[in-house]
């Protein structure tokens, strides 16, 4: 029983990281109607930046974290301006391929700078484990829970209550109409990318603290998984991304522990496929009737 609870907690920890990344996918999808395939690689960029600031420049931890997050945001906005903005009116597939190109670029750029050899990195989170009865919860898990919860609450209130949040919802509903209402669509899209990349940077920092090792392709798999989480929850839906992320983490951790670690990816994808077959727009996605 204790074991099951521990696996569940592990699952929720990984899941909350997936959820952070999934939020970026879902927001960008909602607003720019594109799958930002390079989103997962922002995690990797964030992790390397943190490593550079701490282990190479020897900056204080807090400053490094802040710098990492800010830099990632800027990089996200920069990528959007350079690579995606010229394709606003292009076919979705062209945008997808461009995003794949950006993903290749980020991975190979870091491969050039840091080489393919994994780099060891000591976790910046030094919190002691907590014991409740027989169950012990690692410090990193607690920090992850706290950080992701805060991030999600802030994000939800930002989107719900601020003027920019209104603008974001308006643009995701109808770009043209939003523009007519005087909303600066380009600026809104930039902000969306900034927030998405910021969340990915946080995810990257948490991820690095958990695995304590860096390599250029480290963002790819969590990126794909988070995208699956976003689709599972209903792409375009913010609560959906959170739910999808947590669900995915738990499913993965339970199947790794009790079924087969080799087949855990297969199980995760099977769940996604089953959900989509029953509810084609994901768990919390809006159903819509195609107008004929």
């Amino acid at each position: 029983m204790t074991n099951v609870i521990e696996q569940l907690i592990n699952g929720l920890r990984t899941g909350s990281i997936y959820a952070l990344i999934a939020l970026g996918y879902t927001m960008v999808y909602g607003i720019a109607k594109m799958i930002n395939f390079a989103h997962g690689d922002i995690i990797m960029v964030g992790a390397y930046l943190l490593y550079v600031f701490i282990d190479i420049f020897k900056l204080p931890i807090i400053l490094s974290v802040v710098l990492t997050i800010v830099m990632c945001s800027l990089i996200g906005v920069f990528i959007e301006k350079v690579a995606y903005k010229p394709l606003r009116k292009a076919a979705p597939l062209s945008v997808l391929i461009t995003a794949i190109g950006v993903s290749f670029f980020l991975q190979n750029a870091s491969l050039l700078i840091f080489s393919a050899n994994p780099i060891k990195f000591e976790s910046i989170i030094k919190v002691n484990a907590v014991h409740i009865g027989n169950v012990s919860i690692a410090g990193i898990t607690i920090v992850t829970f706290i950080v992701t919860s805060i991030a999600m609450v802030l994000l939800t209130s930002f989107i719900k209550y601020t003027k920019t949040g209104y603008a974001m919802r308006a643009v995701s509903e109808d770009k043209g109409a939003a523009q007519l209402m005087g909303i600066n669509v380009n600026r809104t899209i930039s902000i969306t990318f900034a927030i998405g990349s910021l969340l990915a940077a946080i995810a990257g920092i948490l991820f690095l603290s958990q695995y304590q090792s860096l390599k250029p392709t480290m963002g790819a798999l969590p990126g794909i998984k988070a995208f699956v989480a976003a689709v599972l929850g209903g792409i375009g839906s913010i609560p959906g991304a959170m739910l999808g992320g947590l669900a995915l983490g738990v499913i993965e951790s339970i199947s790794k522990a009790y079924i087969s670690s080799q087949l855990s990816d297969a199980i995760v994808f099977s769940v996604l496929i089953l959900v989509l077959l029953v509810k084609p727009t994901g768990l919390l996605g809006k159903n819509f009737i195609e107008k004929v």
Binding site: A90, A91, S94, I97, T98, G101
Partner: peptide
């Protein structure tokens, strides 16, 4: 870079 460039040029 070529990939991104080609997609942007195409459109």
């Amino acid at each position: 870079i070529l990939l991104i460039g080609m997609m942007i040029f195409n459109n």
